[in-house]
Write a protein that binds this DNA or RNA. Structure first.
Length: 664
DNA sequence: AATCAACCCGAGAAG
DNA sequence: CGGGTTGATT
């Protein structure tokens, strides 16, 4: 057992009862979990088969696997399960979902973009994006609360649905879920909720869960939602020993259903459990921790943790309030260069912001100063059009019932099958209870379409059939190359009139092929369904390359990461805390935790900044420094300046619309 | 079916 | 300001 402190050691060696490890930021929780897995196998003789570790991101899962791999044999590794909640759910469902007809094991996992498309397609007339988002969010929280459309009506009534009746949204939910069932599609929430349903309805599945896992370790427990907690509870009820690791001060995902009371009530919910608090930090300097402790102390807390370290004292963070967002971006880029001159590698530097669009100005400045950078999150690689096109072909081949993907590719690249034809086929399929694919062949005998159009449809069906045969005969990558040619996708993108665009899209296609090759190599498989699952469960952090680039990301994406030098930008009221969280004390506390997460990512240097003017929708907004900055003891700054440099007299008036004295 | 201009409206965070 | 959609035109 490698270098654990006394308290960590106790957490590792407590194996005979349920345990909550309250692990402060940088206190070595990954080390505790991995050490515990190794301890169970090596010292306690627990078969690896009986151990399950659950995380939230692939990156965390991979990290654990890598560390455990150094000690365990490859046979042991094969039997040990280290998975994310979603991949665990998917795994279980691949084996058991046929007990929930009409789903079958070839289901496709859809992303939020697909969800929006589905809602749009189910609407009789145009629906606003905001409305679609609201519907989907409601559906998501219903699923997280384990409510499916067939639940009694009164269960839905307690949800706040604004101006419209809950019944209205329940109708959407019914239509949406019906579409998923017919097309054999699962959304992210289904991956968590359906396993619970299965374990209750299907004895084979329940027996499997019951008999197999005896030790379950959960990472980031503060981020569990009702459904995820229920899964852990299933193991608990079946006699497994639970180790929950997390930090209530880092709970930042309530908007996706995470319930902070899950971790705060662990002691009550899991009988005969104990709690261990890890407060020694191995990441940051004491100066950074001092400032971070100041901030989080402003929250109401059940577990009062105060981080300390034996690392060097280091330097206090700095705070600069710039004149404008442009100045902030330019100066941040300059500071990155200065840090680089002092010996901080670009790869050890990160810039965080509250909202995705804040990356834009930064990017412009980094490009101008020729600083290599990489954005983590935001528009994801697998959501690019050219990639989605290819994946849609693959989806259709893996799941013939997926009419969503089929509609995407039926006339792409263009092959003369227009909207009218597609609408006709969809209606035809609906009338006869056929899948869209089945409608292709049936429409011929029914003479549904003009002969010329039917010929085009036949040709397309033939293409799909041929690809299906090719799939059997080739490796994953080999097959994908063949597909790119036979569908004319690659030639299509290659021949785009805009050469820059053509190059970029082709480059992305090559990257996809590379990813497929890597996947096949790492997992020793050419299975298309497994590759598709891998893609759909891909997370923002997976895009972290080891290149020497500055990393740009939202604070949410920064969780679990660490850098020598960290910049937290946009520290203004209404930006961070976000304007939509400012009226609700609970949400403001969550914003504070978010800032706490941001600060505790830094090992050595922490730069905080804000701007007095920020452009939004092409208009200027005038802002004041964030309350979170004022919560840090003034003595805990190396440099502090909250006065904007007003060098443009025209804007003076705007600044003093609100009396500064009133504000401070 | 493809192209383009006018127009509208919006961006909170993510598996 | 800029992306996405609509509707007119070819």
């Amino acid at each position: 057992m490698i270098r654990l402190n006394k308290i960590q050691k106790k957490a590792v060696e407590t194996t005979d009862s349920h345990l909550l490890v309250m692990a402060g930021a940088g206190s070595g929780k990954t080390r505790v979990i991995t050490s515990k897995i190794i301890h169970l196998i090596k010292n306690k003789g627990v078969p690896p088969y009986a151990i399950l570790a659950i995380t939230f991101t692939n990156k965390a899962a991979d990290e654990m696997k890598t560390r455990v791999k150094e000690v365990l044999s490859s046979t042991d590794m094969r039997h040990l399960q280290v998975r994310t909640f979603h991949s665990f759910g998917a795994m279980l469902l691949r084996s058991f979902i046929s007990h929930l007809p009409p789903y079958d094991s070839r289901f496709t996992i859809i992303d939020p973009g697909d969800q929006k498309k589905i809602i749009k397609s189910l609407a009789e007339k145009a629906v606003k994006t905001a409305q679609i988002n609201f519907i989907l969010q409601l559906i998501s929280s219903w699923k997280n609360d384990f409510l499916y459309p067939d639940a009694p009506f009164k269960s839905f009534a307690m949800y706040d649905t604004g101006s419209k009746e809950p019944g209205y949204y329940r109708e959407w939910y019914k239509k949406y879920q019906d579409h998923l069932l017919k097309n054999n599609l699962l959304d992210f929430d289904d991956l968590i909720a359906l396993p619970v349903q299965l374990s209750q309805k299907n004895s084979a599945c329940n027996d499997y869960l019951k008999s197999r896992w005896r030790y379950v370790l959960v990472d980031e427990y503060q981020d569990t939602n009702t459904c995820q907690e229920k899964i852990i509870r299933l193991f608990y009820q079946n006699g497994a020993t639970i180790t929950a690791v997390g930090d209530d001060d880092q709970s930042i995902y309530s908007f996706r259903g995470a319930d902070i009371t899950n971790i705060r009530c662990f002691e009550n919910n899991y009988k005969k459990s104990s709690v261990i608090q890890l407060e020694q930090n191995y990441r940051s300097t004491q100066s950074i921790l001092d400032a971070a402790n100041d901030v989080i102390a402003h929250n109401r807390r059940k577990y009062q943790k105060k981080l300390f370290t034996r690392n060097e004292t280091g330097e206090y963070p700095s705070f600069t309030f710039y004149y404008s967002d442009r100045e902030e971006a330019a100066e941040t880029a300059l500071e990155i260069l200065k840090a680089n001159d002092r010996g901080c590698a670009f790869a050890q530097t990160a810039v965080f912001y509250r909202t995705n669009y804040q990356s834009r100005l930064l990017e412009e400045n980094l490009i101008q100063k020729k600083i290599p950078y990489q954005i983590i999150g935001g528009y994801k690689f697998f959501e690019r059009k050219e990639i989605k096109d290819i994946i849609s072909y693959l989806n259709v081949l893996a799941n013939k019932r997926d009419s969503l993907s089929l509609q995407r590719i039926i006339n792409f690249p263009p092959r003369g099958i227009g909207k009218k034809t597609v609408t006709r086929l969809i209606n035809f399929a609906a009338d006869r209870q056929l899948t869209l694919m089945q409608a292709f062949s049936q429409s011929r005998s029914c003479k549904l379409l003009p002969a010329k159009t039917q010929r085009k449809i036949d040709k397309f069906s033939e293409l799909i059939n041929k690809l299906e045969k090719d799939m059997q005969r080739h490796s994953l990558v080999g097959f994908m190359k063949l597909l790119l040619q036979k569908t004319m996708l690659f030639p299509f993108y290659q021949q785009l009139p805009d050469k820059n665009e053509a190059n970029e899209r082709c480059e992305n296609i090559f990257q996809l092929l590379e990813a497929a090759g890597e996947f096949a190599e790492n997992n020793k498989t050419n299975s298309l369904p497994q590759f598709l699952e891998h893609i759909s469960l891909h997370t923002a952090q997976d895009e972290m390359a080891q290149q020497d680039t500055v990393k740009l990301m939202t604070v949410h994406n920064a969780k679990g990461l660490e850098f020598d030098t960290v910049f937290v930008t946009g520290m203004e009221e209404n930006t961070f805390p976000h304007i939509l969280s400012i009226d609700d004390p609970d949400e403001t506390e969550e914003e504070r935790r978010l800032f706490y997460v941001a600060m505790t990512r830094a090992r050595k240097n922490l730069f905080l900044s804000g701007a007095g003017e920020r452009k939004q929708y092409g208009r200027s907004k005038y802002l004041f420094p964030s309350r979170f900055i004022r919560e840090i003891d003034r003595n805990h700054f190396k440099y502090y300046n909250d006065i904007s440099r007003i060098d443009n007299k025209e804007n003076m008036e705007d600044y003093f619309v609100i009396d500064q004295h009133e504000y401070f």
